[in-house]
Structures are given as structure tokens and as C-alpha cells.
Design a protein around this nucleic acid. Structure first.
Lengths: 227, 227
DNA sequence: CCGCTTAGGTGATTAGATGACTTGATATGT
DNA sequence: ACATATCAAGTCATCTAATCACCTAAGCGG
């Protein structure tokens, strides 16, 4: 992928590289605007379609963002290590169980670390927001519940592991949307999230880890039942 | 990323989707050949550059592979859940340590599971190959050492976790190539790999996990020293 | 001061033609 | 008969030039 050179010599490859140089040498950060396609194609002495192929590649991996009529911007994922596969639409059963097992291995230790880091404040406001959605608004509640897991992972302090968890959640969520299998019991999720939160703000890593594990095992049970 | 629709209505988006449908409805597997660009552009009633933008996006995420003069083929990564970011060139210190910590969390349990699964045979042949590279041939040896970690992860039986480990290794390796910091002691790596292997073929999960953890802590120490 | 209009800038797509590469079939030589 | 060299058809890669669609901020009018 990044350096597996079996096929080599395309101009588009070189352009991709030069674009990345341009972004990094220029010290641009996510959200910054880049030169227009016309200027870029002139600067690199290539035609519009060729340049755009390179841009689309960068866009597909989150390195840039192209906004019609507005411009090209540095993407949020440019510094990430791992990415979710954006092409996943449906997951077959075994893969979904593997995904859950992966979460069961990774997330409980992260919850424990979050408890050690005393970073419960942001999680609290998140669950407050969730409480507002408890009556109706299933879609929003599902979104907030996902964000809870993302936030716990981020609070653990390891950016790479947070990316891994985010990738797993993103793929799982996109699969749920595709199939409209929103069978999870989001109220129960909320309750269990609340318990995890308490353990984190109390600075109790062992409970936080155990509660997270129990929570994910519950989720897995639900998934196994409907297979 | 996959469904974060802030910007929407581009023809190229729709084409990407139709291409994925074409691949999946057609039951194509990685390596299979797809119709030519000419036929695809006619079938979808779009011009060459537009189609190619969609193809480049799919290529960037490993869903397809375009070979000059030959054709378009289904990519190996089309069914993956997580991907390595192909745009990473250099990693800053903190991120590299996070990456190692992630490996320390994930890989030891995988080594333990591999021991339970009694799948040491392939690992043995791998390390036999490594032994041939012990005199000289640093590049090949580094490659085989990477493959050892990948194989252990795969032998654990969880495809998603194997993808995560693969992604972490891929990014780490591409960074090493970029900076030419091949300071790791690959002979010592080989010795430690051998010890892990023995534990796995002996079906001793606890030793396998502990040895893997000790090994990765050694690697982390080396990285910390040169920072 | 606020809302609407508008013009300039920007990305998205079109159209057809040409160059570069791969591959399997053909031809050639031994 | 077999190995090698040649070649032609198919395929991806790039170019050229123009038009369409969209966003945004400046300017206008209320």
C-alpha cells in the first residue's frame, strides 16, 4: 500500500508525494486551505484530470478534503496512523464477532487508564447530553453512545489506540446504518455507560475496566443472539 | 469518513458506490480482473477522467489495483476493517511511543492465543528463512522479522486484530525506511522471536505472552534511547 | 443595521485524442 | 519440436480545452 512497489511509474504517484510535501513543508494543519486546483496544476505542470486523480487519492485517505466551489483543505486524518476502511458496507458474522473481540481486548484497559488520568469531566457532559435523548431520538442517542466509547479511549491518553478504537467503531456504525439493524438496547447502553463513568471519575481503574468489559460482553451477546 | 456527509453530491461519489456494488454483486474476489476503463465509463455513462477519479479513490484504500497496460483488479484490502494510513512518512516521538504501547497492549495476548491454537508450524518455517539472512542481508531480515509479528497475530485467529497489528507494523516500517533509522538489533530480535516461537509450539500461552511483552518492551527501550 | 442579490473564484465534469505499457499469439531460428 | 524474438491488440496514463455547478463574500437596497 504505502510502499509496496510492484507497479511503479505513474505521474499521479509522484503528484501525491509532492502534495504531501507541499502540505508538510508549508506547515499546514488540518482545516487549512490549500491552493486551488488551477494553481496546483500549473505549479506541478500537469493537467487538471491528472492532478485531480492525485487529489482524490489523498481525499480517500483523509489527507485532504475537497469542497465544491470552496477549495481544498487539509483533512483531519492526515496525521493518523490507522484508518477505518471507508468501503465497508456489510460485515459478515465472523468478522463482526472478531471486531467485538478486538474491542473487548482493547477498551477495558483504556477505561482503566482513563480512570487513572482523572479525565471524567468531558465524559460527564457527554452523558448529560445523552440523557436528553433518552426519550425518543434514537439516532442521536446511538451517536452519543458511540462518542462515549471514543471519548473514553481518548481519555486514556494514547492517541494511536484511540484511533484504533475510533476505526472499529466507525466501521461497526456504518454497518449498522446500512442494514438498519439498530437492535441494540440503547437505554441499557446508557445505563452501563453511566456506571463506567462513575468508576472513571472516582479514579477506580479496576472497576472501570471490569465494567467496560462486562458492557462489551453484553453487546456481544446481543449480536450473537441475532445471528 | 465513510459516511460523514458534509459535502455530498458528486458524481464521483456515486461512481465509487456503483463500482463497489459491481464488485460485490459480481462475487469478485481479490485478484479478480474487472472490466476495462473504457467499458466501465460506457456502462456508467461518464467520461474517462471522472471514472478514473472514482477508481483512484478505491485504489487508495486498497479496494482495487490498477496495472498499467494490464487491467483493473480487485484489491487485497477490500474486505478489511482497518487500514494503515498510506500517507505517513515520518512519525513524531510521542506518536511512535503510543504506537509501541498499542503493540504492547495487543500483541502479548495474541501470542498467548496463538499458543492455544497450536499453529506453530508456519512460524517455524518463517524463522528458518530468517536464519538464512542472519549473515548480512539486513533488509530481508528486517522484513522477515516483521512478518513474524504478523504471523503470530494471524495465528491468534482474530482477523480484525491481525489487521490492526498489520497496520501498526506497516506504518512503523514505512517510517523506518523513510528515515533509514535501522538501528534495531535484528539479531537480538531474531533470538527473542525464537524464544516466543518455542513457547507457542509448546502450547504455553502464559510464557508466549510474557516473552512477547518482554520483547516489545526491549524494542521500546531502544526507541526511547535514541530520542 | 439587516437581508438579498450578484459576480468572481473554485471545484466537477465533459469530449476526444494520443502516448506508454503489458501480454499472449505469432513468427523465427536452431 | 522447442526456445527465443517479434509484434499487434488491448489496456491504462496523460494531455488539451472548454463548460457547468457551487460557494462565498462584497455590494446593494431596504
Amino acid at each position: 500500500m504505502s510502499h509496496s512497489e510492484v507497479t511503479r511509474p505513474t505521474l499521479s504517484d509522484a503528484l501525491t508525494e509532492r502534495m504531501l510535501d507541499l502540505i508538510r513543508q508549508g506547515g499546514h494543519r488540518p482545516g487549512d486551505r490549500l491552493p486551488s486546483t488551477r494553481e496546483l496544476s500549473q505549479r506541478f505542470a500537469v493537467t487538471t484530470p491528472t492532478l485531480r486523480e492525485a487529489l482524490r487519492r489523498l481525499e480517500a485517505t483523509g489527507a485532504i478534503e475537497m469542497r465544491h466551489g470552496s477549495g481544498i483543505y487539509v483533512g483531519a486524518a492526515i496525521e493518523r496512523v490507522v484508518l477505518p476502511n471507508p468501503n465497508v458496507r456489510q460485515i459478515h458474522g465472523e468478522q463482526l464477532l472478531d471486531l467485538l473481540d478486538a474491542r473487548i481486548l482493547i477498551e477495558p484497559p483504556l477505561a482503566a487508564r482513563a480512570a487513572l488520568n482523572k479525565r471524567g469531566a468531558e465524559l460527564r457532559t457527554l452523558l448529560d447530553r445523552a440523557a436528553q435523548y433518552l426519550q425518543g431520538r434514537d439516532t442521536e442517542l446511538a451517536e452519543v453512545n458511540l462518542d462515549f466509547h471514543r471519548s473514553v479511549a481518548r481519555a486514556a491518553g494514547n492517541g494511536v489506540l484511540a484511533e484504533v478504537v475510533d476505526s472499529l467503531l466507525t466501521v461497526h456504525a456504518s454497518e449498522q446504518r446500512e442494514i438498519l439493524r439498530l437492535f441494540d438496547d440503547r437505554r441499557r447502553d446508557y445505563e452501563e455507560h453511566l456506571a463506567i463513568l462513575e468508576a472513571i471519575v472516582d479514579g477506580d481503574p479496576q472497576s472501570a475496566g471490569e465494567l467496560m468489559k462486562a458492557h462489551l460482553l453484553d453487546v456481544k451477546t446481543v449480536i450473537e443472539q441475532r445471528m
